[in-house]
Amino acid sequence: MALKRYHPTVIFLYFAAVLLVTMLVRHPVIAGISFLFAVFMRWRLTGVVKTLKSLLYILPMLVFITCFNAVANDRGMTVLFTIGRRSFSLEALLYGFISGLTLLSVLFWFSCYSDLMDNGRFLAMLGKRLPVISMMVSMIFRYIPDTIRHGREIDMSQRALLGSDDRQRKAKVTRAVRLASILMAWSMENAIETADAMRAKGYQSGLRRPYARVRWMQRDVLPVLLTVLLTCLAVVGIAMGGAAFLFYPEWYVPSRALQGGRLYVLVCAFATLGALPLLLDLGEWFRDELCLRRHRSSDEISPYVAAMLPRRHDAGRWRLASCVVIDERKRDNS
């Protein structure tokens, strides 16, 4: 996915924008679009099987929220059925369903965000505003594998010392408590040395300026502009009442929502926003293809380079490799 190759701020901004619009309104169409694009993105990131699995896992939640809303309130007019003295209205069910759909979209968008934004990128972004906190999270990551390794060693050592045949629960618990206690003391002891190392490397000089490997590039500008533009459009649409939708007492779309096509502008803007990663992919594919076409059509291409060119667009790597080879050939010829 092309979005992954952009600056973390771009990724963050994009997801913030999508989540903003998704959660700003409770509207069937917006919730539907958001959900569809979230599922689509998750599918492209993790594949069909995983997406279906997480859908299966998460659908009961939707059912639960829908039912709970129906049970919890009695404002709806269109009574569908009654159980005992409780009447269940279409409106309450609908509201619950849309609520649940919104929540599901939020969860899906978040999981896509986790996939796209690895820890390093997140910390690089966090480091701009909260350098110490960002550094501490890095340090926590540095400590976790050591903690696990030491925990294992303590476990082995204690079991070997005290005999490993204790199947009793009490002995197991005692051992776990001892393990945790030794682990804590040991980790802290090691941390004293880490603190020394930090001082030795001048942490307290007062000059600290965090450095991140990610760099702002020219290609990052376009998605940011698009995201901001589409979000503004959507928010303005919402502010002007484009997303007006009444659930209670009887659901209907107020006329001001449709006035001047406000709803359509809103829907178009949001749908484009949802499809933005796809557009970025298309853009990348187009550039790759263009690059390859040029190489294929140039007559000085050697069979060696031709063999290296991928048949269909594959990855930027290939493109780079072939470009380098061709450049060098040209230099040699001239």
Binding site: M139, R142, D146, A200, K201, G202, Y203
Partner: peptide, 25 residues
């Protein structure tokens, strides 16, 4: 220092290399 692990501050190699440089601004 003596212990190879304890004196490492950051979680990734490049960041550990950068740590002292970050501190010198």
């Amino acid at each position: 220092m003596q212990n190879p692990t304890n004196q490492i501050v950051m979680d990734v190699v490049w960041h550990e290399l950068a740590f002292g440089l970050e501190n010198s601004g």
